[in-house]
Every structure is written in structure tokens, then in C-alpha cells.
Design a protein around this nucleic acid. Structure first.
Lengths: 214, 214
DNA sequence: GTCTATATGTAGATAGAC
DNA sequence: GTCTATCTACATATAGAC
């Protein structure tokens, strides 16, 4: 009975996917620029070139839309940072991790800002995500670091404070870029600024963790 | 001609000062809890036990009120961190600076959060303040650090990236406390958590800057 | 699936009696 | 200086024609 409907369904599914993608991309820009609460569905609709009712057709409420944006951000985000590789040792791993985090902030600044805004506003959606992340990811990294400590490759440090510090330092270049620009007295940050940040942060982390050269 | 009015004027001035203080303190709590945009003058009025029109009598607009809150925060803030003392050398100075910044975040968490929210939202008021701060304060600190480098007391580092990192690490314990709580798996942060943060951050900064022991 | 028109709620702000 | 009542604007969200 639904045989004849398939082509039409496929077309509809295509339109749906396209419009949803357009709305999500536009929302990410507008949310990052205006702030979560100041953003209106009207602004998003205007910037996407759609009537407002169309936005509400795909995402019933503004809250639904924000959560869809956050989900997309977080999914892409996890993929852009490598897991620790036990055999390579702390020096290479920490250096790569910091580099990837800085790249992530630079390349997808809007995503980073939205995440920070949701976190500072204590959005349940983001807190729940972090709790999950903690269980699945962080515990593994913690075990890896402990193994390096046991092998004498680095000093015993608090994994929690280490990650808190690395995240704070790397994300500040995206989330508080207005402050960073004032500090560096630049109108826009260049790739070289991010490279200097990488070097400085890596140097501090490796030295602070007493990572042995090899 | 105004001789007889003085007592009445003094009373009015007293009432004004008291009400303004009440409104500012309440606003700081509500802004930090709800976020800048989600906060309504009605919420502030309710929590202060005043009618909304009374709030608008003292602060004509919500924007005026937010700026008054920010001004109060920033004024108190500068006073709570010591300036660098050239003779003491980098180890003592950096250790004290980090300790004071962490204390500041812990003791006045709401102020720190409001500042972060205003910064991420790129409020002109805060950006202008930072530009002033840069000119007056940071240039002096930069000269001091350069003097230490010249004396061989520490490695040559970028003052800008150093301050960006210290600010990021110390403020993250206040601004993103929800994230920190999840990482440390605690319902509330205790003074001991902040002490551990101090130690970890200090260790990283001193080691990363190659500060010589003495 | 699209979009105009509209319902409903609530924000910021003020007039004007006390 | 206080506070009720109200104005205006605009937000979210939806109904219903196309």
C-alpha cells in the first residue's frame, strides 16, 4: 500500500534533512553571536531566509532547537580529539591533545562559545552530557595517566585538575576571544597566535607534570 | 534658603544609598543565577522585596542596572589582588597572585560569573574596562616580568599568554563550577578543592616559566 | 511542506495617585 | 520616595489557508 509513496517520501525526507541542516547551521551562528537567551526564532528564520513558522515546524520550541544544536556540536566535538595512546607515552599524547583542543576551538569557535554559554548557564542538557562523558571517557584517560605515573614517565598529578586546567586554557582562546584580542592588541586572532598558545600551554603542562624527555 | 532642607536631604540620601545597595546586591545574585538576559527586573524586585517600579526609579533601565552591578564588581575586584613586587622575585609573586585569584573566584563566585557572562556576551562596558586595565595595569606587570627575565630569575615567556592562562585556569573554578563539580564528583566544592587547584596551577606556572628556586 | 495571520504571554518601562 | 495600574513592544508558538 505504501509502494507508490516511496518517491514522495524520499523527496520529503530530503527536504526535511536539508532544511534541518540549514536551520541548525544558522542557529549555531546566531546563538554564538547573540547569546542563547537573546537569540529569537525570528532572527534565526530571517538569517536562514525562512518564515518563522517554518523554523517552528521543524523544531517545536526554541528549547528543542537549542538542544539539537548542542547535540550536533557535542557529537562532532568528541570526534575531533584523539584518545590517549598508552604506548606513545605522555609527551606525545599531551602535546597532541593540547594541539587538537586549540585547533578545535579555533576552527569551530561558535560551537565552543555555545558550549561555554550553556555550561555557565547550567543547561541540564549539557550537564547530563558531561556526566556521561565522565563515566565513559575520562575514567579511561585517568587509568592511562596513572599507568604513565607508575612507569615513572611523569610525576603523580591529579588527573581531574590537569584536565580542568587544559580545558580552561585551550577554550579561553575561543570563548573569551574578545578578552584575548584586547590582551594581544589585535583586531583578529591569527593562526600564529594559536600556535604560540599551543607552545606556551604545552610547555607549562609538560613541565608541571614532570614529563621526562625521551 | 536650603538650610532647613538639609535634614530631609540627608534622610533621602540615606534611603537612596540603602535601597541602591539592596538592589545591587540582589541583582548580583539574580544575574549570576539566571544569566544576564533571562534575569527580569521583576525577579530582582521580588527577591529584594520591592515593587518593580521602585527598581526602575533607582535604575532607569535594565542596562543601567547591569552596568552599575558590573562597575561595583570590577571596583571591588581590582582591590582584592596585590600588584607585583619587583624585589620579591617571580616565585613568591606568582604563587601569591594565583592564590589570590583563586580566593577571589571562590569568595565572590557570583561576581566572577557575571564578569564571565558579560565578557562572553561581549558587553561593551566590560570590554572598555579591560582596555583601560590593559593600559594601566598589565603594562606594568609586563615590565616587572621582563626585569625578572633579564635577571635570569625565570625563562623568557609571553606575558600575555601567561596572564591569559592564569586567568583561564583560576576563573574556571568559579565560572564553570558546574563542570568542575562533575569532574570532581562532588555536590559542592570545598576549600580543600580550591587549595589543590592552587597547588596544581602554581606548580605548572612556576615550572613552565622556569622559575629558579631561591 | 510553506507561510500569513494571529493568539497568548510577558518583558521593560512609565504615569500618576499617594 | 513608594507603588498600582497600565502602556507598548515583542517573544514564543500555533491555526489554518495554500
Amino acid at each position: 500500500m505504501s509502494e507508490e509513496k516511496r518517491p514522495k517520501d524520499q523527496l520529503k525526507a530530503h527536504i526535511r534533512a536539508q532544511n534541518q541542516a540549514l536551520i541548525l547551521e544558522t542557529s549555531e551562528r546566531v546563538f554564538a553571536r547573540q547569546g542563547l537567551a537573546k537569540t529569537t526564532t525570528q532572527m534565526i528564520a530571517d538569517e536562514a531566509g525562512l518564515p518563522k513558522a517554518n523554523v517552528h515546524y521543524y523544531y517545536r520550541s526554541k528549547k528543542d532547537l537549542l538542544e539539537a544544536v548542542l547535540e550536533r556540536i557535542l557529537r562532532l566535538w568528541l570526534d575531533s580529539v584523539s584518545e590517549f595512546n598508552l604506548e606513545e607515552g605522555p609527551k606525545r599524547n599531551l602535546t597532541r591533545y593540547i594541539s587538537e583542543k586549540i585547533d578545535q576551538s579555533r576552527i569551530n569557535k561558535n560551537a565552543s562559545k555555545i558550549f561555554a554559554m550553556a555550561l555557565i548557564g547550567e543547561e541540564h542538557f549539557v550537564l547530563d552530557y558531561l556526566r556521561n562523558l565522565f563515566v565513559t571517557e575520562l575514567k579511561r584517560e585517568k587509568a592511562t595517566i596513572q599507568a604513565w605515573v607508575d612507569k615513572g614517565l611523569m610525576a603523580p598529578v591529579s588527573t581531574e585538575h590537569l584536565f580542568i586546567s587544559i580545558w580552561a586554557m585551550t577554550q579561553t582562546y575561543a570563548d573569551f576571544d574578545a578578552q584575548v584580542k584586547i590582551m594581544l592588541q589585535k583586531d583578529e586572532l591569527e593562526e600564529s597566535d594559536f600556535d604560540e598558545a599551543k607552545q606556551f600551554i604545552t610547555r607549562m603542562v609538560l613541565a608541571g607534570c614532570g614529563v621526562v624527555e625521551h
